[in-house]
Amino acid sequence: MDRRSLLTVLRARGVQDGHYYIEDVHQPSPLPTDFLYLRRSPALSGRWETGSYERGTWETIAQHTREEDACAHLLRLLTADD
């Protein structure tokens, strides 16, 4: 699944828009106080990262070599209680 497909799945499952950020696909503005995210790694070229954002700090949870793996991870993080 790519980032656009992930957005479709999250919306279909009723995950609130302010709970996540997906680079170039869903970037709430203004940024909420805290959320989970998927973005290209600013430190490692060609990598994707998933993590949490809280009070202005981006905290990486995992690095991924493939966008699809990062999408699957963010989906698990956001729907773990389903």
Rank of each mutant, 00 (worst) to 15 (best):
C71M: 08
R11Y: 03
L75Q: 13
P28N: 04
L10A: 05
R13N: 11
D17P: 15
W48H: 13
D69I: 03
H26G: 04
T50R: 06
H64N: 05
P28R: 01
E54D: 09
E59K: 12
G56A: 08
S41F: 05
P28D: 05
A12N: 13
Q16M: 07
D69L: 09
D24V: 03
E59G: 05
C71L: 08
R47A: 13
A62F: 12
R3C: 10
R40E: 14
D34T: 15
Q16Y: 03
V9F: 05
E23T: 00
T57L: 11
R13I: 04
I61N: 08
Y37C: 00
R76N: 12
S45R: 14
L7M: 09
L7I: 05
D69T: 14
T8W: 04
Y53Q: 06
A12Y: 05
S52E: 12
L38C: 01
S41Y: 04
V9Q: 09
V9E: 10
T50C: 12
L38K: 03
C71K: 05
G18F: 12
D69G: 12
D34I: 00
H64E: 03
E67I: 10
L31T: 02
H73G: 01
Y20A: 01
L44E: 11
E54A: 08
Q63V: 14
L78N: 09
R40A: 15
Y20S: 02
R55E: 15
L36K: 10
W48K: 07
S5T: 15
L31Y: 10
Y21N: 03
A72S: 12
L10M: 07
L44F: 12
A70M: 06
L7E: 10
D24K: 11
D24T: 11
L74W: 02
S29V: 02
A70C: 06
R66F: 08
H19M: 12
I22G: 04
A12D: 14
I22C: 05
Y53R: 05
T8H: 10
L75N: 06
S45P: 07
D2I: 08
T60H: 01
G56T: 06
E67N: 08
S29D: 11
R66H: 14
L78G: 10
H64I: 03
W48V: 04
P32S: 06
R4F: 08
Q27W: 00
P32C: 07
S5H: 13
R11W: 01
A62H: 15
T60C: 13
H26P: 00
A72Q: 13
W58H: 13
Y53F: 15
L44P: 00
L10N: 02
E68H: 01
R11V: 09
P42Q: 09
I61H: 13
G46H: 07
I22K: 02
A12S: 13
E54P: 02
G14H: 08
A43F: 12
R4I: 09
P30A: 11
P30T: 13
P30S: 10
T33C: 05
W48S: 02
E67Q: 15
V9G: 00
G18Q: 12
W48G: 00
R39T: 01
R13V: 05
L31I: 03
E49Q: 14
R4A: 13
S29L: 07
Y37V: 02
L78A: 10
W58P: 06
A62Y: 14
R39A: 09
S29R: 14
